[in-house]
Amino acid sequence: MIGVLKSMAVTMKHALDGRTFTVEYPDEAPEVSPRFRGIHKFSQERCIWCRQCENVCPNDTIQIVMDDQRNGEAYDLHVGQCIYCRLCEEVCPVDAIILTQQFEFTGATKNDLVYNKEQLKNVPWYNDIDPLEVREPDRSVWIGEGEGEVDYQ
């Protein structure tokens, strides 16, 4: 019986202290970490069309089309299929694709979530956080060469 009363005392304490931990979401924009991985932003000016992001993507989310002069024609990214692993940002040598903090996006159909390069360019910053300024990517760590000689083929 004492145990029961003790548990009732605990819940009453919580009821009376008036503290809540839920957030009124759309009214209150939640804080997100600078490292948070949200929807992508793409810069056509920076991109050198090296296709590394397309290669490293684990589930073929990025589709790149180029003409025979290696000029980019299309850069499609299926933000609904993406698993937000951030490998494309890590592999990109010129910061052409970065993952913003933006997580608010919708689409009526799956097809609406296939973003082309214009849509990717227009993705807004979340709370004006520019990931490039707040993150400190350490690419030298990421692109290791391993032990032994490097063969330049």
Partner: peptide, 20 residues
């Protein structure tokens, strides 16, 4: 989230270490 950037799908480890 502060450490890895994500709340559930962390993708924090890399072979030979961690990413951040």
């Amino acid at each position: 989230e502060e450490l890895t950037g994500q709340r559930m799908m962390f993708n924090y480890f890399r072979l030979g270490g961690v990413v951040w």
